[in-house]
Amino acid sequence: MSPAETRPLVEIKDIRKSFGPLEVLKGISMDVAQGDVVAIIGRSGSGKSTLLRTINGLETFDSGSISVDGTPVIGGEKELKALRRKVGMVFQQFNLFPHLTAAENVALAPKVVLGAGAKEQAETAREMLEKVGLGDKLGNYPSQLSGGQQQRVAIARALAMHPKVLLCDEITSALDPELVNEVLRVVETLAKDGMTLILVTHEMRFARDVGSKLVFMHHGKVHEEGDPKTLFAKPGTPELAQFVGSIG
C-alpha cells in the first residue's frame, strides 16, 4: 500500500490561529478519512468557521499543518490553486454569482480552471444541476430562485470541480425553515454516495443521523469527538451535555 492510501484524506495537526490578541484556534488536530461525514458543532465564536476556512486556505493559520490528499495547505498562489481543486466549499450565504445563470455558475470553474470546452461545460452543468434536483433551472439567474434552490446550485457548483472533500459552513442557516430539508436531503445523498464531507451545522438531528463523526468545539479546541449517536445519547463532558441540551 502506498502512503497516500493509508494516510487520512484531510490531516489537521495542531493548528493555532489568532486574530490580533484573540486566539481563536488553540491547537486543533483532526483526521478525516475518505468517505467520512464530519459534523462540527459548538457555540457561536468557538472557531468552527475559522477552522473550516483554514482547510481551503481562505484563512491563514499561525502554526501547525494541514494537508488534503497529500497537498499541504500553504500560502503560494500555485499551491492554493492545487489545493482548491481538491476542496469544495459551500457557504451560509450561497455566494452565487448573480450575473450568471445557474448553469453558468456551475460551469464557470470547469471552464476557467480546467479549460473545459463549451460542450463539456453544458454537460457538466446539466449533470450537476440534475444531481441536486434542478435540471429544469439551468437558465435561471440566482435572483429567480428560492433560497433553497440557490443553495443547491451552490452545491452543484462546488461538485462540478469533482472535489475530494466538500466543506459546508452552516449551509442551511440562512434558509427559511421550510427550505432547509431540500438542502439537507441533497447533502445526505452526497454522503450516501461516499463524498467526504466536513460540515459545520446547527442541525443536530442531521449531525446525528448522517454524520459518521461528531466534533464538538469549545473555546477554540476540540473538546470532544466521536460517534455522533453515542455522543448525543451520552455526552462525555458537561459542556457538550449543556450544549446539546440548550439546542434541544
Binding site: 490553486k81 482548491r84 466549499m89 457557504f91 455566494n95 470553474a109 476557467v112 480552471v113 462546488a158
Partner: peptide, 24 residues
C-alpha cells in the same frame, strides 16, 4: 462572498476579476 466563492473554486486573482468581480 464573491471573492471567497470564486477563490474556493480555484480561480486566481486575474480570473476572479475577469469572470466574477468586474462584470458586477
Amino acid at each position: 462572498g464573491q471573492w471567497e466563492a470564486s477563490s474556493s473554486l480555484a480561480l486566481n486573482y486575474v480570473e476572479q476579476m475577469r469572470y466574477v468581480i468586474l462584470p458586477q
